[in-house]
Design a protein around this nucleic acid. Structure first.
Lengths: 164, 164
DNA sequence: CCAAATCCTTGAAAATGTCAATCATTTATT
DNA sequence: AATAAATGATTGACATTTTCAAGGATTTGG
């Protein structure tokens, strides 16, 4: 489930920070939800210029790597239903940003790879997304950002093979 | 504040951890989304026993404080549309867990307060939710959890606050 | 007093999430 | 090798959630 921000992007900070006294303000889950919601808003705003949202951007980014992900892998990795992946790729494919290729060893699979146009769009979108991230975390020191990233990675990939 | 991370990761993998090589695996926004999704799942599972979800639990928790929040404040604080607050409170009120009281100085407002039954349910649900949080973050050291909480709080409210 | 703004509520439309069934293909079993 | 079981992609139906716009009640500002 997702908490979504209905605030304008430039809208002034927290109108009712009075409730921040509540005990749930210390719940990591609650803080995570709030931060994620605010970040999504900024991210989607930054990506709108390229006709992308967080979802399609993620798929495009994964298609731009040289990993040749199958749709099933994308669904698992992004924690989405396979049918949602179909819709996302349909759109990206119609825009000529990605291609479906039959799996090499398994013809049921469809490998998703970015076109050169897709790579171009992705490079530009990535810049915008990273700028949005920097802005969103501008109140943190570089050390804090690094710690946050490391802790998040450790938690997300726990019990997994070592990440990048 | 000391921010340190034990970055030793090992173990056997999730089905598609292969894609973790991708660059988006380092995006704070992406990690936030994944961690939030996983946490929500655990949270909702823990709260189901009490007929609550993250949303209704949050509202109930805020109603249990002595802050007498108005619905507008709840909407702002939880980043939800006011109409969603109406539905959440309707349900909690029908179950006898919270009450709507007319605002003291402004009769348009409705102050939301928990009943004693609501407080009882909340106390039990809080235990379950906190246990779920502990389980979710079990791969982190106490120090890392404290750092995470502090950094999240600082970012969300753009003001530093001491962790518990 | 009047106009504008605010709070809650309702309802409808759009976007998302969830699930079951299907076809083509692969894997496992006999 | 033949058959059964399992898997990947796709479609479509259905429920839930988000997002808007409008309305009645009340307050605020001129």
């Amino acid at each position: 489930m997702t908490l979504q921000v209905n605030d304008g992007i430039e809208g002034a900070g927290e109108p009712s920070a009075r409730l921040a006294e509540s005990t749930i303000s210390n719940d990591v889950g609650f803080l995570l939800a709030k931060l994620h919601a605010a970040g999504s808003l900024l991210n989607n705003a930054a990506l709108a210029e390229f006709g992308l949202k967080e979802r399609s951007y993620s798929v495009l980014a994964l298609a731009c790597g040289n990993l040749g992900p199958t749709q099933r892998e994308l669904a698992d990795f992004l924690s989405l239903d396979p049918s949602q992946i179909v819709a996302l790729i349909d759109e990206l494919e119609q825009r000529g940003l990605v291609e479906r290729k039959p799996g090499i060893s398994d013809r049921r699979q469809k490998l998703v790879t970015a076109t050169s146009e897709g790579r171009r769009i992705h490079a530009a979108a990535q810049k915008a997304a990273q700028a949005a991230e920097v802005a969103h975390l501008s109140m943190l020191t570089a050390q804090e950002v690094a710690s946050l990233r490391a802790i998040l990675r450790k938690t997300v990939w726990a019990a997994d093979a070592p990440g990048p």
